[in-house]
């Protein structure tokens, strides 16, 4: 049994390493397959912006190419890329020269992880619970009214919901700030006013992501629970004289929950990409806004860096889900 489990874990680790390897390679290749020279492009843009100053474009271009190693053969560049990556060096931003991409990402990451992690986890847990309650006999009137409404919200894209929320709660009612992660005047410290300010700013983006998601998870959980309800082991559990609480959690939810976890793994990508737009709308200082600004400014290294972080995060999340799954479903342990 335990050697079987060990083999399972080992296989997932190898899988994770492979996924990250492929992701890094593709992330390296794609920008280089694009036509055009990023150095020349950005210099040309600089030149147009700066007016007709006579500078030796060729010389500067060569210096930069040398500096970024773009004059080397592709394979050497690839090896260098890996070497840099292992030193956590993702290059330098063009737009905010000479700021390191790693620094920018590390600054944005906590915001995104905090917002997305909390919103996803919250909506997953609450949505699943509501869906299960809705399907179980004896659901209260509140659940039977609220949850179907949530399911309707699930059909509305995150960013539309975000715009509606901003209009109602920030523009009309002025309960919450319309944008930003924190008041510009707040000095970031680990104290209550700072935390309160952060939470106050997070409410609307959090709601934009959660509202739709809760309905989504409730929908999935309801149909799973309905099918589990028809299983013989539920009837038998009742015939054993177990309390409704015990039957609901350990025989009902415990089984209905399994496909939800698979769905969570599958939908993480969609959650992340959907949340990017929400961050942009709220001008939230997270990865989404960083990526959006970088794309608009053609800031290649930043784009590459953020995409890499997103892919690796996803791969690690899937890895974690894979590790949790056999603990919940003994039939998967091989």
């Amino acid at each position: 049994m335990s050697s079987e489990l060990l083999r399972y874990v080992l296989r997932r680790v190898i899988q994770l390493v492979l996924v990250i390897f492929v992701a890094v390679s593709v992330n390296f290749l794609i920008p280089r397959l694009l036509p055009g020279d990023p150095v020349a492009t950005s210099l040309a843009r600089l030149q147009t912006a700066g007016g007709g100053t006579a500078i030796d474009i060729e010389a500067i271009s060569r210096t930069y190419s040398e500096r970024y190693g773009l004059d080397q053969p592709l394979f050497t560049q690839y090896l260098n890329y890996w070497a840099d990556l292992l030193r956590l060096d993702l290059g330098v931003s063009f737009a905010n020269f000479p700021e390191q991409v790693t620094t920018m990402i590390l600054r944005a990451l906590p915001w995104s992880v905090g917002l997305l992690g909390a919103a996803t986890l919250f909506s997953f847990v609450v949505g699943s619970w509501l869906g299960a309650r809705l399907a179980w006999p004896g659901a209260g009137r509140v659940i039977r009214t609220v949850v179907p409404g949530m399911m309707v919200l699930a059909a509305v894209p995150f960013y539309l919901l975000a715009i509606i929320l901003v209009y109602i709660f920030a523009v009309e009612l002025r309960w919450f700030p319309p944008a930003g992660g924190v008041q510009t005047t707040t000095i970031m410290r680990f104290d209550w006013p700072t935390i309160r300010d952060i939470l106050h700013h997070a409410v609307l983006p959090f709601a934009a992501i959660s509202l739709g998601n809760i309905g989504f998870w409730a929908l999935g959980m309801r149909s799973q629970t309905v099918s589990v309800l028809g299983e013989d082991y539920i009837t038998f559990a009742e015939a054993k004289g177990l309390s409704p609480h015990r039957v609901f959690f350990w025989y009902g939810i415990r089984n209905a929950f399994l496909p939800q976890i698979t769905a969570l793994a599958l939908s993480l990508g969609a959650v992340v990409s959907g949340a990017i737009l929400v961050e942009v709308i709220f001008n939230y200082p997270g990865l989404g806004t960083l990526l959006y600004t970088a794309i608009r400014g053609q800031d290649y290294y930043v784009i590459q860096g953020v995409v890499l972080v997103l892919i690796v995060t996803l791969a690690v999340m899937l890895f974690i889900v894979d590790l949790i799954y056999p603990l919940l479903d003994p039939r998967i342990r091989r």
Partner: peptide, 8 residues
Amino acid sequence: MSSLNPVL
């Protein structure tokens, strides 16, 4: 055959 909870 299906009266036992598969996860316990």
